[in-house]
Design a protein around this nucleic acid. Structure first.
Lengths: 188, 188
DNA sequence: CTCGCCATGTAAAGGGTTACATGATTCT
DNA sequence: AGAATCATGTAACCCTTTACATGGCGAG
């Protein structure tokens, strides 16, 4: 789906397909050469894509055919099955007691930094999209995904800040565990 | 890591490990029997866990040993590598032009419903956690993950609402495409 | 008694990444 | 000339899920 989709935006080589997916879909999707080249071969066999004959010797990009577009629409129309979640950060925090507050703090800080960088990347993408007039037709849809990235990153940052406060109060509590609270309470 | 972590909270059978992971970590992690039982066998071989001898014939839960706890800490301390993202919803929206506004609207609506249900689930988890006094030590850390789930779900809902407005204006624009704009402009 | 759940496993198949091999072209 | 990048592939390996096989036990 990703490969056909990439070719539906512009003809390109397999190498370029991967670059495009990395650059524009990097936060939502990824494909490796081991997937892309066999897929291209299969699609060509099924006449869903065809090699363009440019005068250029070194590059012969693929273009999507009508059959390919039809197949892409079919695939897009299928139910999106979300893969089993595997969030290493959350797994570690869940068992954070074994790790201790300091290590957890590091984890959250690093997650915050990542979210911050994702946010910046999304804003770059927004600017690039505005400039690229070739993408006018796709732009409204691509904007939806950029907006999702922004919302997600912003939420991560807000969560991280909240979590950092919680962890600090946790560490403080541990270092100085309610000095004689029960005793003072018992004093009349 | 997930299996040792589960056993670090309480001794339980392999079956129960899976139930626990599904119920409490479901939004962040998942394991199948095909992973859990071989892992348990290996851990037992390495003396990281041991079978408890309850009088009960049908259930002999595993308990984590000191070596197991040490290994768990080692694993938790490792860098969390986030897996390659695979977000079917975003992939579809990115190529949404091929799908059309209506289908995209359905996708976003369904995502919104999912986020709504996740939010409810997180609030349940919060309540359950407050009740369960066995988890007092782990609770502060578990709360971090619950909070992350809430932030994420809330962000998804906000994004979905924004996206729905964008899609509607897109559909309206398509249905009624600027009637004769260029002609009227050219008239003196 | 039978159905469904608890419980334990295993083998096959699928999906995917990594690493390697190869060569042309372009840049320095 | 040498390094980096573009470009295409492939094979091994790894992780994981799925499906099946098996059996004890409790409830209706």
């Amino acid at each position: 789906m990703a490969v056909l989709g990439a070719l539906s935006i512009a003809p390109m080589t397999g190498y370029a397909v991967r670059e495009q997916i990395r650059e524009t879909l990097g936060h939502f999707w990824s494909e490796s050469f081991g997937q892309i080249y066999p897929a291209l071969a299969e699609f060509e066999r099924l006449a869903m894509i065809e090699r363009l004959d440019t005068g250029d010797s070194r590059s012969s990009p693929f273009a999507i055919t009508d059959q390919g577009t039809a197949r892409l629409r079919e695939l897009l129309a299928g139910e999106p099955q979300q893969p089993k979640p595997r969030n290493g950060l959350m797994l570690r925090l869940f068992f954070g007691r074994q790790l201790g507050p300091e290590a957890c703090r590091e984890l959250v800080l690093s997650a915050r930094a990542q979210a911050e960088s994702q946010l910046a990347h999304m804003q770059d993408a927004r600017n690039d999209l505005a400039k690229d007039t070739d993408l006018d037709d796709d732009a409204p849809y691509i904007l939806l995904t950029i907006s999702a990235g922004e919302h997600g990153a912003t939420a991560s940052i807000a969560w991280a800040d909240e979590a950092l406060r919680a962890i600090e109060s946790l560490a403080a509590q541990k270092a100085q565990p309610r000095p004689h609270a029960t005793f003072t309470e018992e004093r009349p």
